[in-house]
Amino acid sequence: MTSAIEITGLSHYYNKGTPNEVAAIKNANLRIEKGELVAIIGHTGSGKSTLISHFNGLLKPDEGKVFVDGKDIWQSKESLRESRFKVGLCFQYPEYQLFEDTVFKDIAFGPKNMKLDDEEVKRRVLRAAQLAGVKPEHLDKSPFDLSGGEKRRAAIAGVMSMQPQVLVFDEPAAGLDPHARKQLIDMIKSYREQTGCTVIFVSHSMEDVAYLADRIIVINQAEIAMQGSVSEVFSRGDELTSMGLNVPEITRIFLMLREKGYDVPKDVYTVGQAVPHIKRLMEGGRAI
């Protein structure tokens, strides 16, 4: 089976050939399988947004190749256009891209560009609205009358309505309050469960990463520094710290508990995993 996205030897430079040339991503190799939920983490300016803009050909690699579903996207104009629809990219603060006079029309923008018939467009809009958690009564409203979180959902629905095989989010929960954040993260989770699509997301919240991801890609100073399962990556906490990142808070608490002599595992990454251990300790299990 072909990978959803495969990248070989990818490098990208901004302001190439001028004194302020910066290598935003250097010699990146990665492979994302179909149906995976992958998190990309890295400190600010490490090149995450640059990397994901290559997934649907918004940026052209200076070196290296990008394959979507086994096809080199830069092979021809058609393959490039195809990649735009196969890989849906949802940028940071997507609400700033809303422009139509109703939410419905805005969500329909993508499918319309795919030249689908009205019936299919409508079907996709309704499905995307349901997946993204846009309330049905909001569909006929102006997107500018919604709250920040509702706008975000409408914008995300606008990408989902293209029914891409791969959906990429750049910091989907940035600037939301804790409650809206939780809802959004759960929305991504249920989207993956309901559609089985590949999902890639960039995040600065290690809690969200631990909660959602199957696999983590760590970017440091324009290079891919680590790749692996959640436990593989978070077990290398010291290296993460040196890259300006961290492990989830609950993991840190458990490491502290271990230092104090409590018998708890060190590979606990979410609150859900932590609950039984805490319960056990509260029932009086001071160890060793």
Binding site: S53, L58, F91, P94, Y96, F109, G110, G158
Partner: peptide
């Protein structure tokens, strides 16, 4: 540039 990229990602031609 940012808005153009976002709309291009939605297939704007």
């Amino acid at each position: 540039n940012r808005i153009m990229n976002a709309q291009k990602a939605r297939g704007a031609d």
